[in-house]
């Protein structure tokens, strides 16, 4: 998941080791012939081309330029590109569309360094896409700036002080219409691949039927009653009162409230 690995697949192309495979005829874009990793196929034409290109590159000493020249001379029908999954890494993260727009999860990411934060936001968005979650963001929230001023030296040299600050950057990613389980999986995945120097905080909401509380009551009310009875015994007046007792008690209470002891 480290960032340099992202660049690795491109390196052979840049160095001209792998030729950009031209398509012979108009082959559909999804065909495997177009994939870059298919360059090891036993195509004699290709092999010859490869060796020639290598020779050219070794003689001219600038593989990229020769490659570009070749490309420019080739007709339009020859399409070449990376596999889609690889290409997606260099493009904006894909997004799902929310059908209803009910927010189900607010993920706040915090960091002191913008690079890590941006990278991890990107990662989170991609993960959300593949989990079929509609993610919105990253919304930049206000920075938190904390500053401290300390004397540089001992007490008497109060005149020369130094300022320090810590800026916390925050980003918000909101999931809409997410299934609670999918949201949990997403959060767990992000936690598993937690990036250094990034803090995460999530608010999760679950939606259910209107009479959900009623159902809950019905199922739990009996159990809680049993549990609470033993506790209630210690609360208030445990002994039963007769009407006379009650009247007397009320009278004393009234007297107390009036200020009498």
């Amino acid at each position: 998941m480290s960032s340099p690995r992202l660049l690795r697949p491109l390196r052979p192309f840049l160095q001209g080791q792998l030729p950009l495979r031209p398509a012979q005829i108009a082959i559909p874009r999804a065909s495997t012939q177009l994939r870059m990793n298919a360059t090891t196929s036993t195509d004699s034409k290709d092999a010859a081309e490869k060796s020639s290109s290598k020779n050219v590159s070794s003689s001219s000493g600038d593989p990229i330029i020769t490659r570009l020249e070749e490309l420019s001379t080739e007709p339009e029908s020859k399409i070449s590109r990376m596999p889609r999954s690889l290409e997606a890494l260099y493009l904006q993260p894909l997004r799902r569309e929310a059908e209803f727009g009910h927010p189900t999860c607010d993920l706040q990411l915090r960091s002191y360094s913008i690079r890590n934060l941006e990278f991890f936001c990107d990662f989170a968005l991609r993960a959300a896409y593949y989990l079929n979650l509609a993610a919105f963001g990253p919304i930049p929230l206000p920075k938190k700036i904390e500053r401290w001023t300390v004397p540089k030296s001992t007490f008497i040299f109060k005149k020369s002080q130094e300022n320090f600050e810590r800026i916390t950057l925050r980003r918000l990613i909101q999931i809409k219409d997410g299934h609670p389980e999918a949201v949990q999986v997403w959060l767990a995945f992000l936690q598993k691949h937690a990036y250094y120097g990034i803090g995460m905080k999530a608010n999760v909401w679950e939606f259910s039927k209107i009479d959900f509380a009623k159902d809950m009551e019905r199922s739990t009310i009996e159990e809680t009653k049993k549990l609470l009875e033993s506790k209630w015994e210690h609360m208030g007046h445990s002994k039963k009162m007769s009407i006379e007792d009650m009247q007397e008690f009320m009278a004393t209470e009234r007297r107390k409230i009036a200020g009498g002891r």
Binding site: V150, N163, F164, E165, R166, I167
Partner: peptide, 21 residues
């Protein structure tokens, strides 16, 4: 304050930098 300054200048406190504004 002194230990804080030493640590901050040494870069041991994440995110703490010399400020100027």
């Amino acid at each position: 304050r002194y230990n804080f300054r030493m640590e901050a200048l040494a870069g041991n406190l994440p995110g703490v930098k010399k400020a100027s504004w």
